[in-house]
Design a protein around this nucleic acid. Sequence first.
DNA 1: TTGTAAATAGGAACGATTACGATTTTTAGA
DNA 2: TCTAAAAATCGTAATCGTTCCTATTTACAA
Lengths: 137, 137
Amino acid sequence: MNLQDAITVLKEKGYKTTGKRKDILEFFASEDGYRPAKDLIVHLEKKYGTISFDTIYRNLHLYYDLGILEKTDLEGEKHFRLSCSHHHHHHFICKDCGKTKEIEVCPMDSASAELSNYEIEDHKFEIYGKCPECLHA
Amino acid sequence: MNLQDAITVLKEKGYKTTGKRKDILEFFASEDGYRPAKDLIVHLEKKYGTISFDTIYRNLHLYYDLGILEKTDLEGEKHFRLSCSHHHHHHFICKDCGKTKEIEVCPMDSASAELSNYEIEDHKFEIYGKCPECLHA
DNA sequence: TTGTAAATAGGAACGATTACGATTTTTAGA
DNA sequence: TCTAAAAATCGTAATCGTTCCTATTTACAA
C-alpha cells in the first residue's frame, strides 16, 4: 500500500481527500514501521500548530477500517503502519525504532490442529527485539 | 501454579500474606482464564464495599513480577491469569469468556531463522475465538 | 507485646482515547 | 463558477484504565 493506492481507496469509497488526510498518509509513507498516534500528532503540529484529537483518531480508525493501515497494541498504546502487502505474514518489531521486518512463518497451520472444536477468529504472532541498526547504534 | 504455591512464593520472598492478597489469589484460582483488573475490583467490592485501586494494581504487578500471574494485553486492557505451567507454551483465548487453552506449537524455531542479525527479546503468539462452550451456548 | 517496615485507603493525577456541539471545508450539481 | 448539503475538522470536555501520593493501618519479627 502506498500513498496513491490509499488515496484511490479513499475516493472509491466516497471519502473526501482533505489536506490533513493526505498529510497523515504521507507521514506513514515516510515512516517505516509502527507509530503511535502521539508521533502523528507531533508531526502534524509542526505544520499546523495544533491538531484536533478527533481528526487524528477518526482518520486512524478510518484508514484501519479501509485496510490502509495495520494496527497493533504495544504496551497499551495503539501503533499503526501502512498495510504492507497482499500475502499473509507476521512482523518482527524493533522495540527501539519501531521498524518492522516481515516474518513468513505462520504457526496457524499446525496450531489449528490443536483446536478442532474451537472457532478461530483471529491470531497474533509478533516478535520483539532490536533490529540490526539499533543493535549497532 | 495454585493458591498454596503462590502463598509459599510470597512468604519465601518476604512479602506479607494479607487477607486481600489471599482474596486476589483465590479469585484467580477460581477463575479459569484471563481476567481484567476490573473483574477483580468487582469481586473484591462484593466483600469489602470498596477497594483501593492501589491495592489491586500493586498486587497484580507484584504477582506478575513473582511469576505467579501471567499477563496479556487485550484491546488496551491488561488481563491476568494464574501462571499455568513450567514449559513454554502459548494460548488460545476465548473472546467471550476469557478461558484459555494451551497451544503447544511455538513458531520461534522456524521464525528465528529469518532473523539472523536481529536480537530477539520476546514474542507473542495468541489465537482468539470462541471456545466450544461459548460456541454452543 | 510492641516497634517498624510493609500494606492499604482514598482520592488526585495521568496518558491515551472517545465524544460532542459548533464551525469550516470539500465536492457534486445547478 | 457558485452554492447548498454532506462531510470533516476544531477545541475541549469526558471517559477509561492505570499510576501516584500521603496518611493510616496491619503483619510479623524480636
